[in-house]
Design a protein around this nucleic acid. Sequence first.
RNA 1: GCCCCUAUAGCUCAGGGGAUAGAGCGCCGCUCUCCGGAGGCGGAAGCGUAGGUUCGAAUCCUACUAGGGGCGCCA
Length: 552
Amino acid sequence: MTPADLSAAIVRILAGLQAAGTLGAGSLPTDVVVERPKNREHGDWATNTALQLAKAFGTNPRALAELMAAELRGVAGVAAVDIAGPGFLNITLDAAAAGELAKTILEAGEAYGTGSDLAGQRINLEFVSANPTGPIHMGGTRWAALGDSLARVLIAQGAEVTREYYFNDHGAQIDRFARSLLARARGLEAPEDGYGGAYIGEIADRVLAGTADDILALPDAEAQEKFREYGVELMFGEIRQSLHDFGVDFDVYFHENSLYESGAVERSIERLRELGHIFEQDGAVWLRSSDFGDDRDRVVIKSDGDAAYIAGDIAYYLDKRSRGFDRCIYMLGADHHGYVPRMMALCAAFGDQPGTNMEILIGQLVNLMRDGQPVRMSKRAGTVVTMEDLVDAVGVDAARYALARSSANSQLDIDLEQLSKRTNDNPVFYVQYAHARTKQVANNAASLGVERTEFMPELLNHASESELLAKLSELPRTVAQAAEFREPHRVARYLEEVAGAYHRWYDNCRVTPLSGGPVESVHRTRLWLNEATGVVLRNGLALLGVSAPERM
RNA sequence: GCCCCUAUAGCUCAGGGGAUAGAGCGCCGCUCUCCGGAGGCGGAAGCGUAGGUUCGAAUCCUACUAGGGGCGCCA
């Protein structure tokens, strides 16, 4: 008996009451929320359904609660139903019905926690998309952790997800990058508007070492082109490697330049022109984005004939849609939030639904802190702190967990001291240790002959077992909400609660008998609960891309 | 000036209309004759301000204050 089972039972009861004429006409909910009450004196589960629906059914909350309670008491596994306050229903299960969950979880295994809310949806999830002009900095790192985890959560809800990286290999920033490489190779200062980190020297050296001809002997324009061609390739290789080492691999690395080479940019602008949303003024080509909620119109082709940045986005969006994606989710940094209205406008200009076909998530900035001061310098990049810096300092698990455990729309300060020097005082270790402990307990149980040969769920009746079971039952709902709200951090917070409940259970309920004592049914049954906790922690950590070690 | 995000414990953050607002860290106590004490138990400590909606607001709305970010024919 899980909260989901109770919820379904309540929906059936309401329908039954209405069919019997006991309730007036009123639209029935398809799902009601059943929650663990904060105060254990209020039972195992509680719902405020009667308070919320009474008005719609033309009755008062207390009366509706009475009707529902009478029916609920007849549901198998329900031990008691009380009505409290203005109309809360407090439900107590019998221990066996609650304990059954341990077996359910073990039978489901890796599938426990998955759902089908998003079944059939084809989602394109674009994140990171950092320019290949330098290493990935903290903003991109946060998106890598959060985006990859979101992808996993969406997949767990049945969506078909393509992780995509938009590779901006076209335009002025790349030119500056190439000029910077060339200048460094010639022993000159970086250009005024160029890039100056130590990595520029490294890349420049590798370009020189990797090309047979003496490209420094070429005229500037040709030499710069060589540095652009090979330098971008090398930089991008490094970015891919950093991401891979971070546990993030994209299904598609999309090259902006390909949109220009294939003519997709011209074709997409032509399409908008046919739809009547393009006009020309002052020698430039404009998108009438103000017709679609943007605060002004936007230049698509500049008066000098070059494409503006948005031209690539127009073509890219159309390309994603033509590849069959119902939803295109973009994860952007806070410094790009001003770009959102024009993106939504171009979506609408194509006749699509902003917010549905196109969804944009904005992530606030993240600061690395050390000794209470922001860390701004990176050895390699010169100015920004990179993904590699963070991983070097704290490791992949701690880095990903720290970045994924907070909501994207709050700014985040990450304390390197807490994550590195005192690693055992870190939330990720609290969770990972709980998982390792389930393994240790299982090993001890095996060596003492405790096996899962019998399962008597009514023996899981200690208060700490009730708490643990209740917490384990919430994984499916947590994952579903994380997917619905695009908030994978919910999974991390949930796991911390599971870990706490497990540690408390461990201190109260032994899986192995005291030395010399007989192995009893209760030990064998508790082993199921121990294993079920391991499954939940493992499945949850997997959604965050964090390892579940068997020992620490 | 306009737009976006944020304001909850000493710190970093959860809490998407419900009952006594939580976690980790830090601080003060306690806890091991038996599954790893990297644990557990107890304590001190908090919703920026002012209104509004509601039976009920940390949560929704408005104003204000404070912090961060953004407002190019840059990318």
